[in-house]
C-alpha cells in the first residue's frame, strides 16, 4: 500500500506516493533523479549514501521514506550555488580529497555536517567523525587534509 509523503529536498518541495519500505536512497535516486547520492554497502557502514535530514547526517539506505516525511533533506546536489562550490567542496578539489569519486558525495556531506556542528575541529575530531565514511582509493590522508583546510578557511 502506498502512502503520500512530502519531502523538502535541497529547498524544493516534493509530494510522492511511496511504499512504507521504500528507502530514502531509492526515493532520492530513482524517484527524484538525484543520483549524486550513492549506494554502496547498503547496511549503513560505508557512508556513501550519507545525506542530511533536518541537518543531521544519516544513512539514507537505512531510512524508510515514510520516516523522513516532512523533513528537510540536503543531498550533495544541494550544497553548491549556481556558480560556486561550497568551501568544503572546493577544499576536496584543491587538496585531492577524492580519486574514483564514488564515496565523495557522502564524504562531502559528512564534512559539511561536521563543520556545521564544530567549525574548528581538531585532527582527532575529524578522524572520529569521518570514520564512518569509507574510501577504497585515497588512503584518507587527502580527505582529512581537505576537511582540515576547509575548517581553516572558517566556513563549511
Amino acid at each position: 500500500m502506498k502512502y503520500a509523503i512530502t519531502l523538502h529536498v535541497n529547498g524544493q518541495l516534493y509530494t510522492l506516493e511511496v511504499e512504507p519500505t521504500r528507502l530514502l536512497v531509492d526515493i532520492l535516486r530513482y524517484d527524484l533523479g538525484l543520483t549524486g547520492t550513492k549506494e554502496a554497502c547498503s547496511v549503513g557502514v560505508c557512508g556513501a549514501c550519507t545525506v542530511l535530514v533536518d541537518g543531521q547526517m544519516v544513512s539514507s539506505c537505512l531510512m524508510p521514506g515514510v520516516a523522513a516525511a516532512g523533513s528537510s533533506i540536503t543531498t550533495v546536489e544541494g550544497l553548491a550555488g549556481r556558480e560556486e562550490l561550497l568551501p568544503v567542496q572546493q577544499a576536496f578539489v584543491d587538496y585531492g580529497g577524492f580519486q574514483c569519486g564514488i564515496c565523495t558525495p557522502g564524504q562531502v556531506i559528512a564534512a559539511k555536517a561536521l563543520l556545521d556542528e564544530n567549525p574548528h575541529p581538531t585532527a582527532e575530531e575529524i578522524k572520529e567523525w569521518m570514520m564512518g565514511n569509507l574510501c577504497r582509493c585515497t588512503g584518507y590522508y587527502k580527505i582529512l587534509e581537505s576537511v582540515q583546510r576547509a575548517a581553516e578557511g572558517g566556513q563549511a
Binding site: G44, G47, T50, Q56, M57, V58, S59, L62, M63, A110, E128, W129, M131, G132
Partner: peptide
C-alpha cells in the same frame, strides 16, 4: 556505538 551517522538515528 558504530558511527556518528548511525548514532544520530
Amino acid at each position: 556505538v558504530a558511527t556518528v551517522r548511525i548514532r544520530n538515528v
